[in-house]
Design a protein around this nucleic acid. Structure first.
Lengths: 218, 218
DNA sequence: CAAGTATTCAAGATATATATTGAATACTTG
DNA sequence: CAAGTATTCAATATATATCTTGAATACTTG
């Protein structure tokens, strides 16, 4: 193989993989699957996609070795192939949300609308949790919490938050987290809890970022 | 802005940026620009693209804030906007070349064809250079060497290597490096030097990976 | 095994991406 | 300012990506 052929083959392959993730719907699917595996139905419910369309996007991701599937009874469950991809994805997200001016602007407006500025970083969180005057709140759907969550967090899914305020000690500072920087659940939680008089902030990142950080440090 | 609108805006923006780099020619341009700034002509020379086509690809990268340009006399020089993108790009490359089976296969065949297996990693290099029985050889074009190179490296561009063997001490182990894992110059250097009886290996990574690693550790 | 459900397939219409061509612009140099 | 050079623009043809629709498949459950 000549040098030019090698280069072409490598760049073609790399571009093919990148194309597979260069689509808004597929990026949203990736974010969902970085929480836990989901059936096609689970994906359809939170994305507005039709069944056929979601299935097609999943095939694209599968053909490019980004997700894998297993069948259990009538259902097909999809999940990310491994954490290596998740780690790359997070690098991309972090770059995009800090360095692309347009995205930075949209994001800060979203935080402001929900009164959720001054987010806490994972590093800060670590110190705060040790200090023990903090309540770490996971507002993702409970299935995602059960699949994995930040050590020490309690689970109150966003749609049950209003009816479960009694379970939130009002003397502690609440740190809410969700799926990641692009997820709005924690923003909504901050807004609601602030209105109810709580001292509350959101985590800048989400569960997947915490998980990758854990596996990195081992 | 509702949650769905926010998500759509963020994923659209992220997909747009990813699409900008999801093209073989643009990936090759990015690799070139991670060495040093280049004029359009410089890019045309090493890529097989026509002027108009290269220019169009550069516009795409520029509109997505991946490269910037400056004009000097008749020439327009392009370069990467900053090292944050370079760092993300390297994460992507590392993932792709290790985790995508097809690319891994192509890469190892390329190394084998040039007798360049057993590449040295940056970490290993650091230890070897300290031991001082090693000659670090930069085989990129001299303009790229002059713009920046690994500390301690000497420059012999690949196309001048055969006529400059006298400058390579034969008692040392030679470590050749070039633009990065997708660049073939170091492979060709290993092949040539092995045929001439040198003890030689290539660096797995290239100058940009070393540079990012330097700035990270500061 | 019939009926129901979850998922995928196949075909088509529309939108976007890409490379090519020839011309236009902008700058430099004599 | 005329001639030359580097780069970009605009228009087009082709290829690829995307979403929709309706059907086909595969599995489960009664």
């Amino acid at each position: 193989m000549k040098g030019r052929e090698f280069k072409d083959a490598m760049y073609d392959g790399l571009a093919k993989m990148l194309k597979a993730i260069s689509n808004p719907s597929r990026l949203e699917i990736i974010e969902m699957l970085s929480q836990c595996e989901k059936s096609v139905e689970g994906i359809v419910q939170t994305t507005n996609l039709t069944f056929a369309n979601a299935s097609q996007h999943l095939q694209v991701l599968k053909n490019n070795n980004i997700v894998k599937s297993r069948k259990d009874r009538q259902y097909v469950y999809y999940s990310l192939v491994n954490d290596d991809f998740l780690s790359v994805y997070q690098h991309i997200i972090r770059f995009a949300s800090h360095e692309i001016a347009e995205l930075e602007r949209i994001m800060s407006r979203q935080r402001k609308d929900n009164n959720a500025q001054h987010a806490v970083s994972l590093v800060e969180l670590e110190q705060m949790v040790n200090a023990d005057n903090v309540l770490l709140l996971d507002v993702r759907p409970s299935a995602e919490y059960e699949f994995g969550h930040i050590t020490g967090a309690i689970s109150i899914p966003m749609n049950e938050l209003l009816t479960n305020l009694k379970n939130i000690a009002s003397d502690k500072e609440v740190i809410a987290y969700c799926r990641g920087p692009f997820c709005v659940l924690a923003d909504e939680a901050v807004k609601l809890l602030k209105e109810k008089g709580y001292k509350v902030r959101r985590l800048d990142e989400g569960y997947p970022e915490w998980k990758i950080k854990q596996t990195m440090s081992n």
